[in-house]
Amino acid sequence: MTPFVFNTTAQIVSRPGASSDLPVLAGSLLGDDILFITDRGIRALQLEQPILRALQHSGATVTVFDAVEADPSLDTLQQATETARSIGCTGVVALGGGSSMDVAKLVALLAGSGEDIDRVWGVGNAKGPRLPLVLIPTTAGTGSEVTPVSIITVDGEEKRGVSSPLLLPDIAVLDANLTLSLPSGVTAATGIDAMVHAIEAYASKNANNNPMSRILAVEALRLLGSNIETAVFDPDNIEARGKMLLGSALAGMAFANSPVAAVHALAYPIGGSFHIPHGLSNALVLSEVLRFNAADSANGSYLRYAELAPHAFADLTAAAEPRDLCATFVNRLADLSVKLGLPARLRDVQIPRNALSKMAADAMKQTRLLVNNPRELTEADALAIYRAAW
């Protein structure tokens, strides 16, 4: 049996309404001076209010940092870290999508350890310790609540990451009630994002691709594929919302240990340069990257995609010829994005064709992701994929 290491969040609480019980779940862990990290969209919806009231009623002092933006910048991270240090922070809570959770992870690390961010970029460079950390997702997509990765935008465009088991939170709270207010477009894009996590984890070339990640990826795709349309078109369906949230977390556990690859590498320049949301960025290049990988029989990715097909789309049969099943799987993923109302092509989100060459060059900087791709990908390949997706 191939050796592997599997890390995940120490405790996961999954229950509608669980976020309002945070003092019971984590009060002794977080301490008396809590930094609460979120964004202004969450504040406008007042999703944070029941949680803040519960924490304050328990006697904690809570400082809210709500300046997190999509694709959070290094400046935002530094502001949040300084806020944590200035209040003598004893614990960090994040409520929101991947951006708020990514900022919270690094704030807990930097404020807890005193480390310099420039020394922790990359894989395994963080030393710790970190402050106690609780993550509460409001989207079913990033899986950030169970991953050891944080992505920050540097110098306006470059996506730079920190990967370390230290970034895994102490507790993740999956409260499906918090996802009921998500607009349909966000539900669709984040749901596709979670599906990408499962697909790339299952087919990853990483040496730590392991049986646990593959099992989780399969169950994630089953939950996501069978519930994403209901969640988009019947948004008050709490059962579908809960299954999407669980599917997202399972996919997060999978790719946290069997890392993602070229879909994400090519998605990052789309988000970094054109501020397209991460889930949609993934959706825009997904089918073309999978076609590129599957075209080379030697890497075996077409077999992996064929294995996943019946789990994502229950009407497909595993008895079909693998090549045909792989092709159907890729086409069905592309059709699903359109059915959910997402833009289908790069030009549909106002990306000009003359930007594709720079995007290809930028994608090649994502070496920590590209090494996991089943098929080696060059800058010329990246450009060809962007052109096909344009």
Rank of each mutant, 00 (worst) to 15 (best):
T8K: 10
T8L: 04
T9C: 12
I12R: 10
P16W: 05
G17V: 07
S20I: 04
L22S: 00
L25R: 13
L30Q: 08
I34W: 03
F36T: 03
I37K: 06
R40V: 11
Q46Y: 08
E48R: 01
E48Y: 00
L52T: 01
R53N: 09
L55Y: 08
Q56I: 01
H57E: 14
H57P: 00
V62Y: 04
F65K: 12
E69F: 00
A70I: 08
S73C: 07
S73N: 07
L74P: 02
T76W: 01
L77S: 05
A80C: 01
S86D: 13
G88I: 02
C89S: 13
V93Q: 14
L95W: 06
L95H: 09
S99T: 07
D102M: 01
D102F: 00
G114D: 02
E115I: 11
E115V: 04
D116W: 14
R119C: 07
V120D: 06
G122S: 10
P129D: 06
P132C: 15
E145W: 00
E145R: 11
V146H: 04
S150D: 06
I151Q: 01
I151D: 11
I151P: 01
E158I: 12
R160Y: 01
G161C: 09
V162E: 09
S164R: 03
S164T: 12
L166W: 10
L167Q: 15
S184Q: 15
G191A: 06
I192N: 02
A194S: 12
I199L: 13
Y202R: 05
K205L: 13
K205I: 00
A207C: 06
P211E: 05
R214C: 00
A220D: 01
L221Y: 04
R222K: 15
L223A: 08
G225N: 12
G225H: 06
S226H: 11
S226R: 09
N227H: 12
N227F: 02
F233G: 09
F233M: 14
D234L: 14
N237T: 07
S248G: 05
G252K: 04
F255N: 05
A256Q: 01
S258R: 08
V263F: 07
Y268M: 09
P269L: 12
F274Q: 03
A283G: 01
V285W: 03
E288G: 03
F292N: 02
N293I: 08
N299F: 11
A306H: 09
L308G: 07
P310E: 00
A314T: 10
A319K: 14
L325Y: 08
F329E: 02
L333T: 03
A334C: 04
D335K: 08
L336E: 07
K339D: 06
L340F: 04
L340R: 09
A344D: 15
R345H: 14
R345Q: 11
R345I: 08
L346C: 06
L346D: 07
R347F: 08
Q350P: 02
M359L: 10
A361D: 13
D362I: 00
K365Y: 12
T367V: 13
L369V: 15
L370W: 10
V371W: 00
N372E: 07
R375N: 09
L377F: 03
E379F: 05
A380S: 15
A382Q: 03
A388R: 14
